[in-house]
């Protein structure tokens, strides 16, 4: 349980996918014009990350990884299917996004219209694929991958609603014309990245180990 919380906090705040790794920037910049839309997209990302991460963990461990996959361990084959990793991960993510899309279209049509093309484009949101690849690279266990998916999604959600609120506020500022819109969003993201560096360096695992 302690490790679950550690990874959740770490991936949500300390190693925030947007503000520390700058992943998932396209939808983050495009959909952060109003808090309500950003809130919807953020929830969708939490959901997609939270589901795809464990599913991808299962696929990666049982089907792909040569040391643990079922072909090798049960049928005595010698297969290394890690070349299929990217394509399978994307397939899982795309199907999850389809489900989210149908659900949002059914239950919240106005949000569906506001998100527009960016809802199906969660498929190619690099935060989600990047999360899955981080999970493989860091050799997480199944429980860890659940925590990482939820935490990473929550961090992304926090970042997008925070920048959406700031962008709603600076809509009324006398921003120089050349910087209006995306220019300002980039500057803001950089400054928010600096603000999030406050937590960089905290190691929750070391703290609980010490206590």
């Amino acid at each position: 349980m302690g490790e679950f919380i550690n990874i959740f906090i770490k991936s949500a705040f300390i190693e925030n996918l947007v503000l520390a790794y700058f992943l998932g920037m396209c939808s983050y910049l495009a959909v952060s014009k109003s808090v309500n839309t950003a809130f919807g997209l953020g929830l969708a990302v939490i959901f997609v990350l939270g589901i795809t991460m464990p599913v991808n963990w299962l696929i990666s461990t049982w089907l792909l990884d040569p040391s643990t996959n079922i072909f090798n361990s049960y049928f005595g084959l010698d297969l290394d299917l890690t070349v299929l990793r990217l394509i399978l991960f994307i397939a899982v993510i795309a199907s999850m996004v389809q489900i989210v899309e149908m659900a949002i279209e059914k239950f919240n049509p106005s949000l569906y219209n506001a998100l527009g093309i960016f809802l199906p484009l969660i498929t190619v949101n690099c935060a989600i694929l990047g999360g899955s690849l981080f999970m493989v690279a860091r050799e997480y266990t199944f429980a860890n991958s659940v925590a990482f998916g939820l935490g990473g999604g929550f961090g992304w959600f926090l970042a997008i609603i925070a920048i959406a609120a700031i962008r709603e506020k600076i809509k009324y500022s006398a921003v120089p014309p050349a910087l209006r819109g995306l220019g300002m969003a980039f500057i803001l993201t950089g400054l928010m990245g600096i603000a999030f560096m406050s937590l960089l360096g905290i190691d929750p695992a070391a703290l609980t180990a010490g206590g």
Partner: peptide
């Protein structure tokens, strides 16, 4: 304070 500056407009919202 910089961290919370980033969230101040959200809190207000």
């Amino acid at each position: 304070i910089l961290f919370m500056n980033a969230f101040a407009p959200l809190i207000d919202h």
